Simulated assay, not measured.
Amino acid sequence: MNLLIITGMSGAGKSLCVKYFEDIGYFCVDNLPPSLIPKFTEVILQSKNPVDKIALIVDIRGGTMFLDLFPALQQLQEIGIAYKILFLDATDAVLVKRFKETRRQHPLSPDGRIAEGIEEERRILQAVKDRADYIIDTSSLTPRQLKEEITRLFVEGRTFKGLIVHIVSFGFKHGIPMDCDLVFDVRFIPNPYYVPELKPKSGLDPDVSDYVLSFPESRKFLTKLNEMITFLIPYYVKEGKTQLVIGIGCTGGRHRSVAVANRLAELQKDKGSSVVTQHRDIDKGDQGG
């Protein structure tokens, strides 16, 4: 039996996960009281048509029943049932924004401030997060990107390194993305904006990308940057970081930064990293490359 316990912060995307895991063949049960997990798995094993892949969503909605999770996991070990834990997380600022957008109340602060409920939930869940086999930070992930990450881990069986590399191209004219951990300026590369046949295009077009990457300084920069990121990732993972946001900036965020970000993403994928790419300013018009 492939048993997965899905938990994490309220608002981090567990309801979306249910749909995605059902799509890849998991039998999903949402909001199951933790104390019932051992009995539930025994029933499944004794069934005439046992289910191979099961995902159980357990979270703070169960109130004090959630505290039964660790005893339940201990029982699973005693009866010889292996399991994995997937923990979904997001930054406090993103969680607050999501609750406000959906006008939902936080389960731990139905009559109080959302931030207070998030703080208390994070305290309660820390022990579970510490034991998690997979931690996905959904702060910067779109629903499609979350589905791709789940597919990568649970369908393709890629090695989980505990960290998602999020590469975002941007234009300095529009400001540096606030959530970047590392920012790199590629305005030293010759600008396709000043090449008439390339100006109306973007870094997604092969001829623009070929132009940007044709220069020795571009290739050398990418080689050194890729080596540095590869070197840093294990240390970030060791410190418990689950998402590394790398900003690649040029003047307008349309040509050079896009081409460099895409190439860096390819290089990191070749290294086995889990990579998400976003081009924040690519459609913001004639901004100088």
Rank of each mutant, 00 (worst) to 15 (best):
D185I: 01
S273P: 00
F70W: 12
L125I: 14
I81T: 12
L67Q: 15
E121F: 04
S218K: 14
Y194S: 12
E78I: 02
L146G: 11
K53R: 10
A72T: 02
R219V: 00
A265T: 06
P143C: 09
E149I: 15
R158D: 07
R144G: 08
C250I: 07
H166Y: 08
L232Q: 01
T151C: 03
F160G: 10
F221G: 06
S47M: 08
P216W: 15
P206N: 15
K241W: 06
T223V: 08
L244H: 01
T151Y: 01
I282V: 05
S257K: 11
I248H: 01
A90S: 12
L232E: 00
L198K: 05
F160N: 15
G252V: 03
L125C: 09
Q77N: 15
K14W: 03
I54W: 05
N31E: 07
M65G: 08
V258S: 03
P206R: 14
I114W: 02
A55T: 11
Q145T: 04
A115W: 15
D205V: 04
D68Q: 13
Y83Q: 05
V183S: 08
A265P: 03
K238S: 07
N31M: 10
A72Q: 02
K241E: 12
Q126A: 12
L3D: 01
L153K: 10
R123T: 09
L225C: 09
I79S: 09
L153A: 11
L73P: 09
D68I: 00
P143M: 10
F184L: 11
S139E: 00
R254K: 12
